[in-house]
Computed example of a mutant assay.
Amino acid sequence: MRFFLFSTLIAASLFAAPININSFNSRFEQSIVDDNGKTIRYSGELWAAKPQSALWVYQKPIQKSVYVNAQKVTVIEPQIEQVTLRTLDNEIDFLQIIQKAKRLDDERYAAVVKGQTYNIVFKNDLLNSISYTDGYDNRVSIKFLNPSQNKPIESSRFKPTIPADFDVIKD
């Protein structure tokens, strides 16, 4: 009986631990390489929480905050004093990608969400990176630095504050 309980706990940790993420926070470095080999690099910080909330704060090379709440996306760009509001029918939830991932080996997983394949790497049960090829054949890679998983994130973090003097564009 003890062996069964022990093996069940081990199996659960092997197959569920990395996938069972309810919240996530990390600094990130993102690179996008086009089909000509030109690379654009971004850096910033990400917060994500179930059911469908995310905040991507880009700090370099430009400042921009992208709030995702279910199918509503708010992009705030301070340098051009502009806010873009979008409603997306096909928004992909960051944590949904992780949830759908299937184990390939000890560290690598793959997820197919809405026809898009995502390659996911965990190190010590912490999300380390996600890479994929987007609809324009750009190779996108996001590396997470010092990630934190399943720690409380205030829901107010995901509520954008739109400055009154910014132009608002509705897509």
Rank of each mutant, 00 (worst) to 15 (best):
Q99E: 14
Y67H: 03
F144I: 04
D134F: 12
Y42S: 01
Q96I: 09
E154D: 14
S26C: 08
K170T: 12
N138E: 14
T74V: 15
S131Q: 09
N36E: 05
F4A: 04
I80P: 02
V112S: 10
T87A: 01
I169V: 15
K100G: 09
Y42M: 04
Q82S: 03
I21R: 03
L104I: 13
I62G: 00
P152Y: 08
I19T: 11
Y132I: 02
I21E: 02
F28V: 04
I162Q: 00
N90T: 12
N138P: 04
N90Q: 13
I130Y: 00
N138Y: 12
E107S: 06
I130M: 01
V68I: 14
K72C: 01
I21Q: 05
W47Y: 14
N128L: 08
L88Y: 13
D167I: 12
A111D: 03
A111R: 08
A48Y: 02
D167K: 13
R2L: 02
I92E: 05
D106A: 11
Y132S: 07
I98K: 08
T117W: 04
F24M: 06
K102G: 06
D137R: 15
A16E: 05
I120N: 02
R103Q: 15
V113E: 07
W56V: 06
Q82H: 07
R2P: 00
R86T: 12
S31I: 11
I62D: 00
A12F: 14
Y42D: 00
A164K: 15
A12K: 03
L127C: 01
P18C: 14
K159Y: 03
P160R: 10
D34S: 07
G44M: 08
Y132G: 01
L145T: 11
S26D: 04
P78T: 09
V113K: 08
V168N: 08
A164H: 10
K60E: 13
V66Q: 04
T87I: 07
I19S: 02
D171R: 13
Q149P: 01
Q96F: 13
I98S: 00
F158L: 06
K123G: 02
D105Q: 07
I80M: 10
A16N: 06
S65N: 11
Y118W: 05
E154M: 07
R108L: 02
N36I: 09
A11M: 09
K64W: 02
Y42H: 08
F4R: 03
D171P: 04
T161N: 14
L55H: 09
K143S: 06
I120A: 01
V113G: 10
D34Y: 13
N119W: 05
D106Y: 09
R2Q: 02
E91T: 01
R139E: 08
I40N: 14
K100T: 10
E91N: 14
Y67E: 06
E81V: 07
T74C: 13
K72E: 07
M1Y: 05
L46R: 02
R2V: 00
V168P: 05
T87S: 08
K170D: 08
